[in-house]
Every structure is written in C-alpha cells, then in structure tokens.
Simulated scan of single mutants.
Amino acid sequence: MILTDTHTHQYYEKDAEKLKELMQRCLDNKVERLFLPNVDSESISLIQNLVKEYPENCFAMLGLHPCDVKVNYREELDTISAAIASTKIYAIGEIGIDLYWDTTTLEFQKKAFYEQIGWAKDLDLPIVIHCREAFDEVYEILLAEKDEKLRGIFHCFSGTIEQAKKIVDLGFYLGIGGVVTYKKSGLDKVVEEISLNNIVLETDTPYLTPVPYRGKPNESSYLIYVAQKIADIKQISIEEVAAITTENSKIIFNT
C-alpha cells in the first residue's frame, strides 16, 4: 500500500531532527509520496531542501499563494518564475483566490491567478488551486481558461455537492483532507456522491488535522486517517482507497 499526500507544507518544520522524525512516521504509515506546494519566495528554498533530502518521496510545486499576493506581487512572481527555471516541479501551486482574510487584493489575486495558469499551460503542468470564500470567482476564471491543457487539483475542497460536480466536470480532481473526518463538515456526503476516480488525498500539514488528532499540529503521516475515513464512507478497503487515489496522483503529476 502506498499513500500519496498531494498537498503538505511539511517543510515548515525547520528543526532537522524533528523533520527527520516526521518523515519517518510518514514512511511507517505508508505515506511514501509527498507533494510540496509553495506559498511565497521565502518557502522556495525550504521545499528544495526537503526534495534534495528525500528525492524518492518529496516532489516540488511552485506558485504564489493568494494570501501572499500583495502590492509587491509582481516581484514575488518574478522570483518564483526564476526558480521554476532551475527547479524540477510537478505543478504550479498553490495558486488561486482567498477572500476570507482580505478582499481588498481581489484584483491583484485575479491577475496573479491568470498569469500562473499561463505558466502551467506553457509548461504543460497541472495547477493546484487554493480557494476560500471565493468559489464563484475561481470558477469564473477556470471557465474562461478552460482548454485541453487546463487541469489539476481543487485543494482542500469543502464545498457543496453541486460545486464538487462543477469541478469534476472541468476535469479537476478534489483534494480531500482532514475536514472529511469532522462530524459536522458535511464533506462525507460529498465523498459519497463523487467517484473515487475524481479524488486525491491530502493533509495540508500543519493545518486541518484529522480526527483523532484534531486540535494539534497536522503531519503527513496522519493521511492514513483521511484514507480510512474515505474507505469507511465508500465501504471499501483502505488499500483500495490508497491504490486509486495514488494512481490519480500519478495521472495528475505525471509521476
């Protein structure tokens, strides 16, 4: 059994010994593939270092997180673009729109999102989308950009069944994480309705920790609890969940 965490910021752990322990717990829990989304120019080197340390297990993605799209976003994009030229990456991400924390930067966020979608198309790479309180805005842009090259993951999906179906119809996968283990999230109902062929697993470490560790920092080894919850919902084995979702990740990231 091989589990794939398609979205983890495990590189945030800067203590070398603790990071080594985190990675060992991943391998112990069969979480053998970790995809690392970038957030800003400062996190590039953290990702590169973890990939260098675990080349068989960690895979880089680069992009500018919408919460880090500020007035100087142009400089950030230039720095990230330069890093892409010298880094093996598997997606542009995480990118998108976040209107939960700040609505005043919406126009900047849209411009950055459009530009980075362009990068992905030019490089024939998927995109990994961050969307918070902004489904309509993100969906409008995806419709405008829809073509044979537009593909990727709708990270940390926690919306409605109707929204899920719209995303799947665009050819995107739903990134399902710890929220599915929360009793009142309603995400279990969405997972019931959506084929496992349209789902990938993620943790968003160190955020959104699944039950039974909710309230504590998340880590990629906890992906096993997400996988087990989905297995329970689908009434199949965790091995089947792992096999299908890992295969989905291979299709998306071409690795």
Rank of each mutant, 00 (worst) to 15 (best):
N197T: 14
L187S: 13
G186D: 02
V179E: 02
V191T: 08
D188V: 09
Y182M: 06
L187W: 15
S185T: 06
L187N: 13
K183I: 04
S195P: 06
P206A: 09
V191R: 03
N198Y: 14
K184P: 02
N198V: 13
G178Q: 05
Y182P: 00
V211M: 11
L208H: 00
K189R: 15
D188R: 13
T181L: 00
L201S: 14
E192N: 12
I194D: 07
L201G: 12
V211L: 12
T181A: 01
E192M: 11
P206F: 08
D204M: 01
I199Q: 01
L201M: 12
I194K: 10
T203E: 08
V191L: 05
L196H: 06
L208M: 11
E192W: 07
N197I: 09
L201W: 13
P210T: 15
G186R: 00
T209C: 15
L208N: 01
G186A: 00
N197S: 10
L201V: 10
G186H: 00
Y182V: 01
V191N: 03
D188Y: 15
N198F: 14
Y207R: 10
T181I: 03
T209Y: 07
K183E: 06
V200G: 05
E193M: 12
T205D: 00
L201K: 05
Y207V: 13
P210K: 14
V190W: 14
T209I: 13
G178S: 05
T209K: 06
V200W: 03
N197F: 12
K189N: 08
D204W: 06
T205C: 13
V211Q: 13
G186N: 00
V190M: 11
S185Y: 03
P206Y: 10
K189A: 10
V190D: 12
P206M: 14
P206C: 08
L208W: 00
G178P: 12
L208R: 04
D188M: 14
G178T: 03
Y207S: 11
V190I: 14
K189H: 11
V211H: 13
I199W: 02
E192T: 15
N197C: 10
D204P: 01
V200R: 04
Y182T: 01
T205V: 02
D188H: 10
L187M: 12
V180A: 06
N197V: 07
Y182E: 00
Y207P: 06
K184I: 05
S185E: 01
V200I: 11
S195E: 09
V211E: 13
V180L: 06
V211T: 14
L196K: 08
E202L: 07
K189T: 14
N198M: 09
S195T: 13
Y182A: 02
V211G: 02
K183G: 01
V200L: 09
L196M: 12
E193V: 15
T181S: 04
L208G: 03
V180Y: 03
V180C: 10
K184H: 14
K184L: 04
T203W: 08
I199H: 03
T205W: 00
E202K: 06
V190Y: 12
E192C: 09
I194W: 09
